[in-house]
Design a protein around this nucleic acid. Sequence first.
DNA 1: ACGTAACCGCGTACAACGTACCCAGTGGAG
DNA 2: CTCCACTGGGTACGTTGTACGCGGTTACGT
Lengths: 245, 245
Amino acid sequence: MTDAEYVNIWMRPERPARGPKPLYSRAQITEAAVRIADAEGLEAATMRRIAAEIGAGAMSLYRYVPSRDNLVELMADRLMGEIDLTGVPSGDWRADLTRYADELRAMWLRHPWIGGVQRSLPSFGPNQLLLIERLMGVLDPVVSIDENLGLVAMLNSYVEGTVREEISSAEEVRRSGLSESEWMARSYPYVDRLVKSGEYPIFTKIVMEARQPHLSRDDQFRYGLQRVLDCIAAALPSTAAGPQD
Amino acid sequence: MTDAEYVNIWMRPERPARGPKPLYSRAQITEAAVRIADAEGLEAATMRRIAAEIGAGAMSLYRYVPSRDNLVELMADRLMGEIDLTGVPSGDWRADLTRYADELRAMWLRHPWIGGVQRSLPSFGPNQLLLIERLMGVLDPVVSIDENLGLVAMLNSYVEGTVREEISSAEEVRRSGLSESEWMARSYPYVDRLVKSGEYPIFTKIVMEARQPHLSRDDQFRYGLQRVLDCIAAALPSTAAGPQD
DNA sequence: ACGTAACCGCGTACAACGTACCCAGTGGAG
DNA sequence: CTCCACTGGGTACGTTGTACGCGGTTACGT
């Protein structure tokens, strides 16, 4: 079986039996790549740049990782490992899911580039798997696996969707290389024209509202999350839903 | 004001006053790009390939579009135009939002590559704007603009999240260039190893369940959607929520 | 003990990408 | 009629992922 026969990186053994000892490691490479992506975006994490970061030649990385795409998968799973769900399930499903949602959102905000990796879904890395076990273990005793999948998907969608919105403008500013105030100034004429045209009353409302003070992002998130959890509670058998207060 | 001063493509006039008549148009270029992306993925829609598709030289495209990134924005807005919301708001908010969700999902399934464009959010193209007006017009009479934004975001998140999952495996198959059955065969050993290890009981449940006949994707989607709409109904003032049946 | 096969790090090289720059031709404004 | 802002597009540059092959290193079979 040649290397090309592995579909999955996780099947490919990191260390072979024979030959000289490797100077680097997958974990080290992944770590460097994550560091670069955090600081300068995913597109800055090129093979050459990562190699330079750990003091290796560019092509050396290919001794550890079959391709850049696979490395990105490694990075994504590395990120899943940041979501700490020790002690879950605890018995209080609402607390558990809130904890998960908070951790997931915090992780996305630390590594906004995660939104740019299309989830080639069945990349069940070890951290991802552990997460699934813990997270879905929360509702597993009370609903069918099908329903569990649906509910977890709903929760995930909520978190990802809202956090994508939080991230997008910040990422746009970073990509354009402009300062935030300069970027705002540049955007102003267009928005102003739309508002003045009078054809977009609701858009205008949104813009006007955006100028006013608001709930913090955190509070907005938690508020919406409560609604999603209520929605999940409604789908649970009444004996398991617990107090709705 | 030089071209570089435009932050927004939508500000940049398509046709100048003087000079020879252009042979092509933004719409034509965008159309070609969408066609290629539909057939072979977004990464196949390179400037050279798009130019070849319409019979132009590669560099000619830059007479119409400042950069590839901007072209992708054009493509994204072109997709928004496929979402037909004529007659919305109709007075029946539940029907309207269901219609929107169905249209949005169908559009994603027609153009899976949309998931790969990071929404540099404030790219308010004309189709996007029209959509906002119609969609948010549905709940505008009954909730505050803030709440409306939150609820619409929740609906969007649900649709995007579930459709992303639907798409991911198909896209993975396409990217790998393998046939679906071959891809399944390649994935099998890894999944099998995980199941046999006994360390992942819930993952195992998922795999086992996946082998059984299920609700169609459409039915799953509609089922989850009803739950999301229930959730929205709960957030509406009681006079506007309508019959919950 | 010693060849040999498997592995290491990595330099070179190539195809494909986005796009800066330049040029000759074109057609409306003065 | 004269400009010159515009057109299409060829050439070229820097950057990307990565195939290939080299010389050195290590563990195993004999």
